[in-house]
Design a protein around this nucleic acid. Structure first.
Lengths: 234, 234
DNA sequence: GTTCTTGATACCGGATGCAAGATACAGGAT
DNA sequence: ATCCTGTATCTTGCATCCGGTATCAAGAAC
């Protein structure tokens, strides 16, 4: 909400910049989630309520909330003797997740091709230009972020919020592994070519072509990640 | 541990048949979930921790656990002023969910066609025969259950547990609405024909055909449900 | 020396207590 | 009559407490 209700009343303007009143539990949830998907909490490491609570200077209650939510989301598993652990990913987990992404995201792209409206492709073009600029400069670190934003914009045009949420949840699970794809400059260039082709097919409203492009785009990512993963001795 | 420590000591044998020690919170979660997806708790009705706790004769703590998990799962939403409500479904929610199901389940079926092994189609055949027997008898009430079991068996052959879980979660969301499909005898017969064709294509390991059949099968369900839903004045 | 028992400790699930914010309502001012 | 406002109640979020169980280690029994 960029234009909040009272934003034009000078005396109250500052109130809008106050931190949003979020529950402690929600904060813990988001923090833990970030820590897990970014790899700060390595797989198989144990999560102990009281430790987390103590570290954050709060009670166990909100920590429990967060842990249970993360368990439902599949980022934590409870060991056979109780106790929660960060869920690790096997090679087949990764393969499975990329496979599911390939059908969900290609479907979202198909819907986007059918449903996008006048002018909505402009932000995609801009993102693409930003990507190419970074690529030319050798700023490979920026690419994952821009890449994700491009795909978010694309899927956003599907106007299917549940689908988008599912896609995002899946991406969170394998966030760490997606990073390696664009660190290979050859892949970064291939990605860019794919994006150009997607945009072209979007303009021509060719759902079959867009669907095919996204599917192959993701499956290429899958093979890169699996190769890296297996080489790392997993 | 299928062979518990004292299972051969007669005096303690009965202890092993005690209900599996499940956490209260998990039980509440499952109960509430059932109540929601079966419509016992109508959409938009408010869920109050203390009420639920009192009704079940337990404290608020496990109820909170359950509520928060249900919220993450999308079956509850919190109102703007706090407080939890049963999430209602709009026409577009239903449309969206069936669309996502069509791609996920057809993908699962494709994998099943590629991966099933010797003799694994037998349970599917039996389920199909049970379905036809009930259909001939006019036992329409039995059909949804048998139908679900058939699809579960089919997708199980995909050997993709995450995919299966996602499919089940989606089905839970629209459980109430799926019921109407098979109450129409014409649809029940069409369904049966679809299942026969799927089984045939599975035997021939024709993934494209299986995928196509499942997709159209689900989209037909979608149109039936949407028609009923809109007629009911939603 | 090996195994069994037993006690200490850590941790989780559940219950309860308490405070802050929201809601509803009643009474009073305009 | 309508709108404001103050109060009582309800509900949630967080903290704390309690009991049960699993883990581990040290000591006892064989």
């Amino acid at each position: 909400m960029p234009e909040a209700a009272g934003s034009h009343i000078p005396a109250f303007e500052r109130l809008n910049s106050l931190p949003v009143r979020r529950s402690l539990g929600q904060g813990v949830f988001e923090n833990l989630k970030r820590a897990i998907i970014e790899g700060d909490l390595p797989p198989e490491s144990r999560i102990v309520e009281s430790r987390v609570a103590e570290a954050l200077g709060i009670s166990r209650t909100p920590v429990r909330e967060a842990i249970h939510k993360l368990e439902r989301e599949g980022l934590l598993r409870q060991g056979p003797r109780g106790g929660f652990f960060v869920a690790g990913l096997s090679s087949s987990d990764i393969e499975e997740t990329f496979g599911i992404r390939s059908v969900l995201e290609s479907y979202a792209a198909r819907l986007a091709a059918l449903r996008h409206q006048e002018g909505e492709l402009r932000p995609l073009e801009e993102k693409l230009e930003a990507y190419e600029k970074s690529l030319k400069r050798g700023d490979l670190d920026l690419l994952p972020r821009i890449n994700t934003e491009f795909h978010d914009l694309l899927y956003g045009l599907s106007r299917s919020p549940r689908l988008i949420k599912m896609i995002n949840d899946l991406r969170d699970h394998i966030y760490r592994f997606r990073l390696v794809i664009l660190r290979i400059e050859e892949m970064a260039r291939l990605s860019n070519r794919d994006h150009r082709l997607m945009l072209k097919a979007m303009r021509e409203r060719d759902p079959d072509e867009v669907e095919r492009l996204v599917r192959e785009h993701i499956l290429r990512g899958q093979s890169v990640v699996l190769r890296e993963f297996d080489m790392a001795g997993n």
